[in-house]
């Protein structure tokens, strides 16, 4: 059976589909957060060098990964919107930006909280910290540029170009601990095995998936609002039960 994937690239059909999907993502995210944090805070053993303070990595690492990953997804959607002129892709890009900015902020903040007891300072001008800060600025620039252009189509295209230029930064963040030997530690988890306790690894992975589902749920909810706002003059919107009441 051939499925017509393009059917869901129309905002009107996509709106109904994601309305059904969002609760699933939201609930699985909530459940996974609970499990992940339970393992992270109660099951995982205390670290030999860092004692209890290391437990902040269970939110720090997933948030950092998500902040980079969401930027790439956002730039990908923006590029799709720019190249194929699909309205929905641009809407997805602008729906992802605030969530990505939030994760970048959480990553910097939890990093600072961890840095105080471990490095003895809230902030160092280390390559990875600086490039993560630039990532936050890029998100904010994307949001600001989009917000200051009144015509939504021009806003989409202009901010898409900015997002694509900014994606140069993501590999720099990712490889910064390898290229510059500064204070931030290198990767612990590698494809060739890890130097980490199994419970720690489990907790981190579960929280990462939870963050992922959270991002999907929030971005889809936001894209629903954007669709309603942009399509408000279309008939199918005025026929929706939630709009009519």
């Amino acid at each position: 059976m051939a499925i017509n994937w393009f059917k869901y690239s129309a905002p009107s059909t996509f709106y109904g589909l994601i309305g059904k999907l969002v609760p699933w993502f939201a609930w699985s995210s909530a459940i996974l957060f609970t499990i992940g944090f339970y393992i992270g805070f109660f099951v995982a053993p205390t670290d030999a060098q860092q004692s209890e303070a290391y437990r902040i990595i269970f939110i720090h690492v997933p948030a950092s990964i998500m902040s980079m990953f969401i930027y790439l997804v956002m730039a990908g959607y923006a590029a799709l919107g720019l190249i194929f002129n699909t309205r929905l892709s641009s809407m997805m890009a602008s729906a992802l930006a605030p969530t990505g900015a939030l994760f970048a902020f959480i990553s910097l903040w939890t990093g600072a909280l961890w840095g105080k007891p471990m490095w003895g300072t809230w902030w160092v001008w280390d390559a990875r910290l600086t490039s993560e800060l630039i990532l936050l600025f890029l998100y904010l620039g994307f949001i600001a540029l989009h917000a200051s252009i009144d015509d939504p189509r021009r806003a989409d295209r202009a901010s898409a170009l900015l997002a694509i230029i900014g994606s140069v930064n993501v590999p720099i963040i990712y490889f910064s601990v390898k290229w510059w030997n500064t204070l931030h530690q290198g990767a612990t988890i590698k494809f060739t095995g890890t130097s980490m306790h199994a419970a720690m690894q489990q907790a981190m992975f579960i929280v990462l998936v939870a963050c992922w589902f959270y991002a999907i749920a929030v971005a889809l909810t936001r894209v629903r609002s954007i669709i309603l706002e942009r399509e408000r003059n279309n008939q199918w919107v005025s026929e929706l039960p939630e709009v009519r009441s």
Partner: peptide, 16 residues
């Protein structure tokens, strides 16, 4: 041609 373009351009360009 945007309103507030002067501040906005710094916001976009400085990080890069």
């Amino acid at each position: 041609g945007l309103r507030g373009g002067g501040v906005l351009v710094s916001l976009l360009v400085l990080p890069l």
